[in-house]
Design a protein around this nucleic acid. Structure first.
Lengths: 196, 196
DNA sequence: GTCTATAGTATGATAGAC
DNA sequence: GTCTATCATACTATAGAC
């Protein structure tokens, strides 16, 4: 009989490694373009073993989205606790562009890219993926509400999200990290008008 | 023997219809997700006939990109002629968000989506697709130069491109046309500071 | 120039041994 | 829980008749 720890370390170890690999590959090459064979190769298991953990490719997508939702929630909670002011917290968001600039330059934004792809595939999981955007939107909106922008908090949140998306898309298209820094500077300046 | 007109109307008619259909389908469903069968169905030809006009799928992609490059150049030339001032001309660019809002809401930006996809596929045509972005970038930059923003004309062009991209991505993700109008208003206000 | 038939390959998915 | 077959399907691409 297995202990709880064994169950956790045993049963879930491979499964987690699959989700981990799928998460990265979906980001780097897209959902559709990523095959079971590729994931299996990274995880170093056979394709058959694969189906012991996930019955369909869509199940992996679900797991990846849920994983991202969990990670995003944790990150937002962390920012909420660490930031001393709403302004600080919003700057935490803006700074992920800097922090992840190397990957963004290569692969764009993981959220935007996945949502765009699923819309084009008319995939049933597109709403779940969109929930990732909503997490950010709601969180940023709340920060602006705390800055007393009650009337346009949501509009400002969407504006900031859109700006970030655009930066990621163009940085990736032009393979340009400098552009990211340039736009982050602009974003920080833009934010200042709401905090003074 | 065929006349030049026959050649044009004959030989190219089917080919053009293929490129036309591929252009739309690539926009709506993405390049990889679009199959020959789908294109053939729209054009109402057999898959075999298909290969008389294009030897590989990549050749169709090339044709689609070239078609878009030609169309974009024409559009920019038209804006150049019609716009009475650099400001007017830049507003022509901003207004495509309004003009195409219905399609953008459903499928995002055709340029950004294609470039993002080709980067993820590591496709050899990605640089060609990027040329579409460069066309806009160069054209917008020139408008800002005419507004005497010689030092940051390119930065402003990239900024405007990024903003537009972000609007398209989020409008599509949230299926929200109102957001497009909201952001276009902001963009027009933003532009005003450089024209007064 | 258009068609039908078909080859070749990759993929998602299943069955069953260990 | 992991593996090795294997199936069924979809897709790109080719060959050859008309």
């Amino acid at each position: 009989m297995k202990s709880a720890a064994d169950n956790f370390m045993g049963k879930n170890a491979t499964r987690d490694r699959i989700v981990d690999a799928a998460d990265q590959l979906f980001y780097q090459h897209g959902f559709e373009h990523t095959s079971f064979a590729q994931i299996a190769k990274v995880v170093n298991i056979s394709r058959g073993n694969f189906y012991h953990h996930f019955k369909t490719k869509d199940e992996i997508l679900d797991a990846v989205i849920n994983r991202r939702l969990t990670n995003t929630s944790s990150m937002l909670e962390k920012w909420e606790l660490e930031g001393k002011s709403p302004e600080d917290r919003i700057r935490s968001f803006i700074n992920i562009l800097i922090k992840n600039r190397s990957k963004i330059k290569r692969y764009g934004c993981p959220v935007g890219a996945l949502c765009s792809e699923l819309v084009k595939l008319d995939h049933s999981a597109k709403d779940d993926a969109n929930e990732l955007f909503t997490l950010f939107r709601t969180w940023i909106r709340r920060q602006f509400e705390q800055l007393n922008r009650h009337d346009d908090a949501d509009e400002l949140a969407m504006h900031l999200l859109a700006r970030s998306q655009g930066v990621a898309t163009l940085a990736s298209a032009f393979n340009d990290e400098r552009f990211i820094k340039q736009e982050v500077k602009r974003l920080n300046e833009w934010l200042s008008q709401y905090t003074e």
